[in-house]
Computed example of a mutant assay.
Amino acid sequence: MYIAITAQKLGQSYSNSAADYVAYLEKENEGLEQENQEHFFNQTEDRITPDKVISEIDANTAKLKKTEPKFYSIVVSPSQRELKKIADNPEALKTYTRELMKDYAKSFYREKPVTVDQIKYFAKIEHERTYRGFEKEVLENAPYRKRIAKLENDIRKVARGELKGTIKKLEQEIAALKEAAPHQINGQMIVAGMKKEGNQSHIHIIVSRKDVTNTFSLSPGSNYKASEVEMHGKKVQRGFHRDQFFEKAEQTFDRVFGYDRNFVETYTAKKTLVKNPAMFRMLLGNLPTNEKALALKLLSKSGMRIPSIPTNKVQLALKVFHRLRRGMQRAIESGSIGI
């Protein structure tokens, strides 16, 4: 499970309107018949129009400064193993989203509990995902792309008479590198931005910074962690329990879909890896044999190069741990986490 919470920005300033983001989320509907399109939905409604999403989010910004986010994006991307459990079932994903937003509401730190009825949000399911720059396939293809870029530059220099050589030979070297790249789709080398194959369903949620009454601010931002401050001589609870939300998100997924989550798929395990690698190794080593074998398989798929080690005596190389730990640290600090 990969979950990211981000404030929507345009360069250095926050977006004044949700229009651009809504347009981006409508891209998969282009060219599709109405019955095949995915529509926006919220806690109680289906088939909400893009215009309604824009108008309601844009109008719900009372007293917010230009330097404050008007709305947040929550992206929920199940792993391939989780998607296999879901199968191709958009309605089940809608059910999960509605349960997830109850967890989101409960994660706000307030004297009076926040309920999902107070949250103004709109969600949409998408079925396509693209490769990101930090993913295993892109990283392992990077040396080939770098060499190809160098050869393409050499071809331009040869054409201008700045470099000796034959264009045909350089083109043959490029073709050989493209063929040798370890990760390809239909003969094309995988690069950042390329569409992934198979089931890639995920959820985009647009959530207003203000509650449905346009009165209270509800920010999940990383600068608003659960805390108490004194205002007008009275202690006031504010902030958002991010850890609680991430943990509840996966627990709710497991409950809704009957999913058997492995140790390394848990948010707790990922945070333990970042904060206490020795503890992570110990917990991993103490897993039952079958769970340990699956854990190693899942870690390997996440991009780790794991040496061949008997699963009853797990001693992963420190270099491997440091690599994954750095990635997890960046994810946690950016307000997202996933394996």
Rank of each mutant, 00 (worst) to 15 (best):
I5K: 01
T6V: 10
Y14R: 13
A18V: 10
A19M: 09
D20G: 07
G31Y: 11
L32D: 04
L32I: 09
E33C: 10
E33Y: 10
Q34Y: 02
E38M: 11
F40G: 00
F41E: 01
D46Y: 11
I54Y: 07
S55F: 08
D58T: 10
L64D: 10
K65E: 08
V75I: 15
V75W: 09
V75Q: 13
R81W: 03
L83R: 07
N89P: 07
N89C: 06
P90K: 00
P90A: 07
K94A: 09
M101D: 05
Y104D: 04
E111D: 15
P113F: 14
T115P: 07
I119F: 03
K124D: 05
I125D: 06
R129A: 12
F134V: 00
K136F: 15
E137V: 09
E140S: 14
Y144T: 11
R145T: 05
L151M: 10
D154N: 15
A159C: 03
A159N: 12
R160W: 13
T166N: 07
T166Q: 03
A176I: 11
A180M: 09
G187D: 12
I190A: 11
I190Y: 08
G193S: 05
G198F: 06
G198V: 00
Q200I: 00
Q200P: 04
S201R: 01
H202R: 00
I205G: 00
I206N: 01
V207Y: 02
V207G: 03
S208G: 03
S208M: 04
K210C: 12
D211A: 04
V212K: 08
N214I: 04
F216G: 02
F216E: 08
S219E: 07
S222H: 08
N223E: 14
S227I: 14
S227N: 12
S227G: 04
V229N: 05
V229P: 04
E230V: 14
G239V: 01
F240V: 01
Q244P: 06
E250M: 12
Q251N: 13
R255K: 11
E265N: 11
Y267S: 11
A269F: 02
K271E: 02
F280Q: 07
F280K: 03
R281G: 03
M282N: 13
L284N: 04
L287Q: 09
K292A: 15
A295P: 02
A295S: 15
L296Q: 09
K297H: 11
L298H: 13
L298F: 14
S300T: 13
S308H: 13
P310S: 10
Q315N: 13
V320T: 15
H322V: 06
Q329I: 12
S334R: 03
